[in-house]
Design a protein around this nucleic acid. Structure first.
Lengths: 259, 259
DNA sequence: CTATTTTAAGCTGTATACAAATAGTACTTT
DNA sequence: AAAGTACTATTTGTATACAGCTTAAAATAG
């Protein structure tokens, strides 16, 4: 029992739980989620490099645990580690993205079939909060706020997936594809995006009140379909008319910057 | 170009490609696949510990790249890394296993829908070879040979999945669940297992000759269903009649050993 | 002899020095 | 002037020493 070498017996278990340092694996998980969120919010945009030494300094650890986290992000397909160059955030091509979205659509349907969860009051409260946040985004053009909203909606939906393997896979696929959508926001009709988001959330809420999990995933599937369609249309449109201001696109203003 | 510091200019590019050392990432991938195969073949049975130092000695590297590989296996759900104890091969419980098999069945069907591959002559030749190997297993009770056969069949099926994300997910799920099936082989009717395997392979071959990818995945799905059913039946049977010799089960003869 | 405490051995986690690799830069040569 | 070459700065990959944790054996008090 004695996790702490009780020299004088002063430390009881209650005091221990207050004093104890963060466990190693917990710290790595925290750093992992932090960096993953930054990638999803485009704080680290595609093709940007995130050095190990830099992160090690920020989180006050050595390169070793940072490397562990970055390798996990590499397995997730979020970064690419190049020897002698650095760790660069991956930029997804259209084909891969379509594959990911198609898969997400199918898995979304599956999540209502394989060991589904009960829809609780807590879920509905969370969803109502998300609906309010969506309404507050009209006219503001807060891409990062929108991205946070998407992430939080995703988290609620994940909590409704009973099958652990399916949940983890869906989580990975979300983060693989989510930032691509956010990347394109600056070139799309903002208020329409928010209107879609509000509609999706409110329809989900309605389905939840009917205790209709299958209805929920159908809403989600349709939403994913719309997003994929818009991305495809935009990319094709960009190809055919490359002179539009659409070229400003992502956060890629590293070297060519100058407005 | 000059990867080798040509002191005297003796080494040309042709000689370089012969002499060049294995790239770091390739070496790690090789070690990763080696250990993963050992887990799938029960060379490292569930709950056995595989020390980092031991592996480092075997592959003539330091603990650092070994740790990288083990962490990847941890993300795959194949091992559990316990501080101060060691890296232990995970032992899957019935609930998780059922979730994995259900998911694999659904994903198997999906693989014929999402960007399917062409069935080539090469695929059929490989499958014929697998059929021969299955026939040679009658009466031999070679669990490891059977496990290798399953792995190779899996590899052929993976090569027929066009969607890269789906392929990687299916690959991970296979290795998560495959060894559990092999674990139970000693307690089942060997020749019937082989007969099933032969039947599955020959039916797949027939479907391939009809260029019927959907037929193939239906065969596979049914095979997965049968395996899951047998595992469930066996585990339930073991509960109700624990006195059978079924208890000898896996390679778990570490401490209680003594027949 | 039993129960408790101490101790020691062995493992993973971390930090750090060094090796290998890449890409940009300055210089040399044609 | 242009092309190629060597060099240097920077980054990731590896090896290794040490710290922290876990477990079990051994010593000790009852």
């Amino acid at each position: 029992m004695s996790n702490i070498k009780s020299i004088d017996g002063t430390y009881d278990s209650a005091a221990k739980s207050q004093v104890q340092r963060e466990k190693s694996s917990d710290r790595r998980t925290r750093i992992y989620k932090t960096i993953r969120e930054r990638i999803s919010l485009l704080i680290y945009p595609p093709n940007s490099v995130i050095g190990e030494t830099e992160l090690a300094g920020e989180f006050n650890v050595s390169r070793t645990p940072i490397r562990s986290v970055l390798q996990r992000l590499h397995f997730d397909g979020l970064v690419q580690i190049r020897t002698g160059v650095g760790t660069v955030v991956t930029d997804v091509d259209l084909k891969t993205m379509k594959e990911v979205y198609d898969l997400r659509m199918s898995l979304t349907e599956l999540s209502a079939e394989l060991s589904p969860c009960e829809i609780t009051e807590e879920h509905m409260v969370a969803m109502e909060s998300l609906l309010e946040r969506a309404k507050n985004l009209y006219g503001r053009r807060d891409s990062m706020g929108y991205a946070r909203l998407c992430n939080d909606l995703h988290e609620v939906l994940m909590s409704l997936i009973g099958s652990k393997p399916l949940r983890e896979i869906s989580d990975n696929l979300y983060y693989q594809s989510a930032r691509i959508w956010v990347t394109m926001l600056p070139n799309l009709d903002w208020n329409q995006i928010i209107a879609d988001q509000e509609l999706e959330t409110s329809e989900m809420l309605a389905a939840m009140r009917r205790n209709d999990l299958r209805g929920m995933v159908q809403v989600r599937r349709f939403y994913l379909h719309c997003v994929l369609t818009r991305i495809s249309d935009y990319l094709k449109g960009k190809k055919s008319s490359p002179s539009r201001d659409a070229l400003v696109m992502s956060g890629h203003r590293t070297q060519s910057g100058g407005d």
